[in-house]
């Protein structure tokens, strides 16, 4: 924990000449921050919302955040593998959406509600 705070102090120190600058005055860290913030919001949304559809929407948001990070790294390293992987992530997201929505419709037909709390009997 102490080392964590020390490294945070390092980060906040103004003079850090080794900071990457491959993308002009907007650095990799900017994109990573956007990605992290979006990921955290997706997580919070997934935990707090009780509507099944919104919960899946929040997982899509986390996919999206990962995509931004991957593309930013791809640009930073001037390498296209990150972008290829985003195509793969898109595929997985599409498959996940199809399955999740089929499940949601099925569950809704069963109980006429999208409330996730009503399905606590699925705990197993």
């Amino acid at each position: 924990m102490v080392s964590t705070f020390a490294s945070m102090a390092d980060f906040l120190a103004p003079a850090q000449a080794s900071f990457p600058e491959a993308m002009g005055s907007v650095t990799l860290a900017h994109y990573l921050f956007v990605s992290v913030a979006m990921f955290a919001m997706g997580l919070i949304g997934f935990l707090t919302r009780r509507n099944l559809i919104i919960m899946f929407l929040c997982t899509e948001m986390m996919f999206q955040a990962a995509g931004i990070a991957l593309i930013a790294f791809s640009r930073f390293y001037l390498h296209h593998t990150g972008q290829s992987f985003v195509i793969f992530v898109l595929t997985v997201a599409a498959a996940e959406a199809a399955l999740a929505l089929a499940l949601v419709v099925l569950l809704f037909r069963g109980r006429e509600s999208l409330n996730a709390d009503q399905w606590h009997s699925l705990k197993g």
Binding site: A29, F33, V36, F39
Partner: peptide, 27 residues
């Protein structure tokens, strides 16, 4: 909302952890 405080805490935790990791890693 369901368990807003706990969820926000978890969100903060992962936000902080990821930020620290990313920024120390990025440097």
């Amino acid at each position: 909302a369901r368990e807003p405080l706990a969820a926000v805490f978890a969100g903060f935790l992962i936000l902080g952890a990821l930020s620290v990791m990313i920024f120390t890693g990025a440097s």
